[in-house]
Computed example of a mutant assay.
Amino acid sequence: MQLEGKVAIVTGGGGGIGAAIATALVAQGARVVLTDLDERSVTAAAAEIESTTPGSVASIAGDAASSAHIEAAIDLAESRFGPVDLYFANAGIGGAPGLLASDEDWAKVVEVNVMGHVRAARRLVPEWVERGGGYFIATASAAGLLTQIGSATYSVTKHAAVGFAEWLDVTYGDQGVRVSCLCPMGVDTKLLRPDDAPADDDALLMQRAVETAGRVLTTAEAADTVIEALGDERFLILPHPEVLDMYRQKGADYDRWIRGMRRYQQSLKQEPAS
């Protein structure tokens, strides 16, 4: 897809990968609505883009899993820029780690990491089919192809995000709707490296697993990979290309892969605390 003149919505746009994607989209000539739960951060991110490219971005604060907020973001995009061409379901949370996460913990992560995608697609895809085109980009994770040591909630919901993106592409790809699924490993964001140290052993294990699996990329590097993939309309976007080899190894011999992951987990537990 050519991005010049296109209208995009980017959730989780107050920082991290979302803000970097928005910056890269604007550099390609797109116009963007940024959304984030944190009003201060999304306003600041939009102001930074506006300072170099006036008239290219708008922002709105709210919950990316909320149908009302999704509708408000679409209304803002249409009133400021025109019909929405691309929707980046980028907002995500890590959730409580470990097996003892409560039902409330699970519900919260499912809402943001899965239902936010479902509700946005439910709203936009029928319109895109009528128009003959549109693009849905789901931010999942390498955890959605492999697993996430230390966090069941994150691993399971990211698998679900990948599965939903696959289903969308299979179901609507012949009707002009394009779908991509972003599956990075470590990217230098607050999700990976929060301001406060991990609160428990599972959270620390999760952080170590991501940081040692491969190079931690900058958000700009991840966004550059996204822009390149959109040009080719590739389904699977892998800022860490080695994830594909890991995924193939998993599929080639599942039992061997699980044994290897157990050994990797044990090695992480033996690392001294930093």
Rank of each mutant, 00 (worst) to 15 (best):
G13K: 08
G13I: 05
G15H: 10
G15A: 12
G16S: 05
I17F: 08
I17T: 09
G18W: 04
A20V: 11
I21G: 01
I21S: 01
T23H: 05
A24N: 13
A27Q: 15
Q28H: 09
R31K: 15
V33N: 08
L34M: 11
L34F: 09
T35R: 00
D36Y: 00
L37H: 11
D38F: 04
R40E: 13
S41E: 10
T43Q: 08
A44H: 15
A46P: 06
A47F: 01
E48R: 15
E50W: 02
E50S: 14
S51F: 06
T53D: 01
S56I: 05
S56G: 09
V57C: 13
A61Q: 11
A61I: 12
A61E: 04
G62A: 09
G62K: 02
S66M: 01
A68L: 02
I70A: 15
I70G: 07
I70M: 04
I70F: 05
E71R: 14
A72R: 14
I74C: 07
I74Q: 04
L76F: 07
L76Y: 05
E78Q: 10
R80L: 10
R80G: 11
F81V: 14
P83L: 11
P83M: 10
P83N: 14
D85A: 03
D85V: 00
L86G: 11
L86S: 08
F88V: 04
N90Q: 10
I93C: 03
A96D: 14
P97V: 06
L99E: 09
L100G: 11
L100K: 14
A101P: 13
A101W: 06
S102T: 15
S102K: 07
E104L: 12
E104P: 04
E104W: 06
D105H: 03
D105L: 06
D105S: 07
W106C: 03
A107K: 15
V109I: 09
V109Y: 05
V110N: 04
A120K: 01
A120N: 01
A120H: 01
A121Y: 02
A121T: 03
A121H: 01
R122D: 09
L124A: 08
L124D: 02
P126N: 04
W128R: 04
G134P: 02
F136W: 08
